[in-house]
Design a protein around this nucleic acid. Structure first.
Ligand SMILES: [Zn+2]
Ligand SMILES: [Zn+2]
Ligand SMILES: [Zn+2]
Ligand SMILES: [Zn+2]
Lengths: 136, 136
DNA sequence: ATTGGTTTTGACAATCGTTTTCATCTAAGC
DNA sequence: GCTTAGATGAAAACGATTGTCAAAACCAAT
């Protein structure tokens, strides 16, 4: 029997993007990552960064956040289970949050109104301690 | 003493946009409203629709929803107090939701992590009964 | 190692929602 | 009515993201 090919293929770009995001720990946009990678000498294309982030998100390996007028921001989270975020508006730092009560409320609200195929978005935004004091 | 000027000025465009949204009851994008107004014979410009929705939102008279890859959607809600939405992904119909528990959870989570200037977004998406059965 | 079929890359163009421009129009106050 | 600052809208500009496609990289099988 012949081996199945590996998807997606292991390219150094994919690895570089993933580890840059992992190192950052914060939410970062495709452009942020692109600039950081270039400044470190990695010669990746912006298109590739977009594509890779999208594919990682499709596979559930990273989380994405869509804020009003801003670029989509991605983060490599510590847990693969469903959770939400407390995000610093200024630096992108994030805490992972879980709440059985909120999940229950969402499910119950939808059900009692006859809605099906339910999903939800729950995000909290603020200024982290560091940014509130000096940083900004 | 001279009277203060009225802002924003009362134009028929502003009135038409506001009442079209009020009638709809659902979340609608600028383009949706533009098309509906034009089809009713109202000769408004798309730019004006965008500007008016933005200004109404700034004044807190309408709510806005930003869904992943879609256009911003606006809705004239029944209450001026803080609330969230249970939105039909298909037709835009929405129920207004309130939960002291969720508000408390959000505030408490932020505080315990040292975050200030806190806001949050909480939206539930699904298929309403009508859309789930026949409509789509 | 070399080959060959397939996937991935990346410079560039295209898309699409939204904002800006700016000349013209108009409501509000005299 | 007259004045004028605010409002309108057609068209151009914008910015994030996606599509295109030829060249480069990968990998399983020789
Ligand atoms: Zn911060
Ligand atoms: Zn949840
Ligand atoms: Zn529906
Ligand atoms: Zn709330």
């Amino acid at each position: 029997m012949t081996l199945q090919p590996l998807y997606p293929r292991a390219t150094w770009q994919r690895t570089a993007i993933m580890s840059a995001l992992e190192n950052a720990g914060t939410f970062m946009s495709a452009q942020d990552l692109y600039e950081r990678l270039r400044s470190e000498g990695a010669r990746v294309g912006l298109t590739t960064v977009y594509r890779t982030l999208q594919s990682l998100n499709d596979r559930g390996e990273i989380d994405v956040l869509h804020v009003a007028g801003k670029e989509a921001a991605y983060r490599r989270c510590g847990t693969p289970v469903h959770h939400h975020h407390l995000v610093c508006r200024s630096c992108g730092r994030a805490e992972e949050l879980e709440s059985a009560a909120v999940e229950e409320w969402a499910r119950e609200s939808a059900q009692s109104h006859g809605f099906t195929a339910v999903t939800h978005t729950v995000e909290i935004y603020g200024l982290c301690g560091a940014c509130a004091s000096g940083g900004d």
